[in-house]
Design a protein around this nucleic acid. Sequence first.
DNA 1: GCGATAGTTAGCGACATGGCTAAGCATGAT
DNA 2: ATCATGCTTAGCCATGTCGCTAACTATCGC
Lengths: 113, 113
Amino acid sequence: MAKHDPALSLLFHALADPTRRSILIRLAETPARVTDLAGPTGLRLPTVMRHLSVLEAAGLITTSKDGRIRTCAIVPEALDPVRTWLDEQRAIWEARLDRLDAFVMNVMKEREE
Amino acid sequence: MAKHDPALSLLFHALADPTRRSILIRLAETPARVTDLAGPTGLRLPTVMRHLSVLEAAGLITTSKDGRIRTCAIVPEALDPVRTWLDEQRAIWEARLDRLDAFVMNVMKEREE
DNA sequence: GCGATAGTTAGCGACATGGCTAAGCATGAT
DNA sequence: ATCATGCTTAGCCATGTCGCTAACTATCGC
């Protein structure tokens, strides 16, 4: 029960950007060089690099350099904490709903307008 | 297959902040007034209001005003898109791993340092 | 009506983010 | 040795984020 889990924040923040999500999806297909990732996005190299370092800081990808080529690959288990948090929340939220909060919700909905 | 799904971005961004996550967890317990939410965080009212509007814009909470009191409550199904996206990704990522990308990963790991 | 209570709005400051260009550095091909 | 390629670094600009204070509005209790 981390009060303010930094890893979770990094993960969510990394996933909040559409460009980064598309990079992840591209990498899910196959590992790729930085230039390969820049192509589809239409972004410049330094910009892509930044996104990559955000993804790497969040632990979502690993990169390694062979010669002058940096290869990026996905870290599949990196999503686990997100999934765990989501599961926890859903459990709590739904348990809560099973009680009569549904009633409260309804009252609020009616008053809403 | 939304190219750049704005709803998803809003959701992830809303979840990226520890304060907002703690507000959600607090609201999972029971609906609450704005002031009630401000207390535990130690933040000022306008600051909390901002967080609430981010959460509401993402569809994670609903709020309604009765007299001078605004009550906030969770929207449990709001997490569904996140969960769906996560499931999709995990499916793809793992399918990919079952092929011999594991080999590539290993090579990269060895070269990493 | 008067004062306390609950939110709201406006606006500020510090800093982060997401894009860029320009210039640098290392490696591979010739 | 030279040149092209691939990445990296430094730095700029516009915008967004997160906290605050101050001042305003709108109820509620008396």
